[in-house]
Amino acid sequence: MATPTQPTPAPGKKINRIGLEPIAYRGSKTTLCAGCGHNAITERIIDSFWELGISPDQVLKLSGIGCSSKSPAYFLNQSHGFNSVHGRMPSVATGAVVANRKMIAIGVSGDGDTGAIGIGQFVHLMRRNLPMVYIIEDNGCYGLTKGQFSPTADLGSKLKTGVINDLPPIDTCALAIELGASFVARSFSGDPKQLKAILKAALSHRGTAMIDVLSPCVTFNDHEGSTKSYSYAKDHEEPLSDVSFVPFFEDITIDYDPGTSTTVSLHDGSKIVLTKMTEDYNPTDRLLSLRMLRETAMRNEFATGILYVEPDKPDFIDLLGLVDEPLAHLDESRTRPGKAALDEIMESFR
């Protein structure tokens, strides 16, 4: 992200650093249930893009299928959207980002879309470290098909019909860290401050930024006995650290007590400042991250915050060694070799 010159704001108008009002970042009206955690996440996405001053036409927003995957229609109306097929958004995103490396990609998935039908593509997205923000709107159930268990449903949790889940949940964050993801975070849809800070840090990260956002399903999974309900999540959330994100174009004004915070620089010069709360937490230590996730899970708690980050890991575009211009925009003179090349090839077959 470049540092633009600050435009002079028109009196009385709230605009960001590229001169756009928040409304330019909004989408169509949501069709999800009132009180759905996903809508809160949508709001934070809008805030984050606006505050960072990312031009909406530079954004690819992608999704699979499910309640979560409907949400890209509800933010960034001017962006390029692709609501693809169930569980396969990672491959569509991979093709699109490889085709146009200049675009900023955000993908929204759900716990079924990622953890069940899409687990294969999720695994390989994490391995490739494709530059994109990948959000799991995690409510532990299939909302759009009326409340069946998803692979992140807790062991022993109960459906409205009384059916008990007897399979252990997949911890998508631990899985992502294990697979080599370079930015792994967990947050809660009802924690706007933390979620926004994490989203902004994720947007400044180069590589796959995976964020599992606990997002209660008000219709099918917000009841007693569900660990993905509002009350449960509020009571059992264990923030690892108080996350602040300092964009590269802002002066660092927050004052931190030495010895109580960790600062991680992202590739573009921006910084994440993590204020330690409960323990001495270093998000760049993979083993520590995995151990902490296991321990909090055993206490039936969710560790939230930026769980793991590896800012300097080469991303997929680096590995491919592509030209700087988007591949999709190269014209014939760059992509059709001359006659001499064909002649040489033909000679090799004589």
Binding site: L60, S84, S91, G95, V97, V98, A99, A328
Partner: peptide
């Protein structure tokens, strides 16, 4: 499909 959508 992703790449084709993006114009490649």
């Amino acid at each position: 499909i992703g790449a084709g959508w993006a114009g490649a």
